[in-house]
């Protein structure tokens, strides 16, 4: 099992940037269950990040889940966890399927979901060059 000791909302932008830079990630973090029918289980953000990179999610969705040419934006507001699981198991379009044979532990998906929820939002528009 993965340690889950930091609750959703604690992670600031600086931590997210550090994660993104791969310089020195914050301590292992966890995301809380969401309320309501679309609730997500707790997840280990660090392990979710590791999975996101090793099983190839980043390749199409970007390492921040920001989306791009190869796949849609996922973070920081991924689809509700049940739908997320259904889609990963049996995706449409060109996404490779991640069946229970390949990724048997649903907790791994919860960790990835937690990683995506923990992504920082966009930078302020002021960073961009003028139109």
């Amino acid at each position: 099992m993965h340690a889950r000791n930091i609750r959703h909302g604690v992670i600031g932008a600086a931590g997210a940037v550090l994660l993104a830079l791969g310089v020195a990630g914050p301590p292992t973090q966890a995301m809380p269950r969401e309320q309501g029918s679309a609730s997500a289980p707790e997840g280990d953000i660090e392990h979710g990040k590791e999975l996101f990179m090793t099983i190839g999610c980043y390749a199409c969705h970007g390492i921040e889940g920001q989306g791009g040419f190869g796949g849609p934006k996922l973070g920081p507001d991924p689809m509700a966890f049940p739908a997320f699981v259904r889609y990963v198991r049996a995706p449409g379009g060109t996404m490779p399927p991640y069946t229970e044979k390949l990724l048997p532990d649903e907790q791994d998906l919860a960790d990835i979901h937690a990683y995506l929820r923990a992504r920082s939002g966009p930078a302020p528009l002021s960073v961009l060059p003028p139109p």
Partner: peptide, 8 residues
């Protein structure tokens, strides 16, 4: 364009 602005 501003998403993942600081990523490496």
């Amino acid at each position: 364009a501003t998403v993942a602005w600081g990523a490496s």
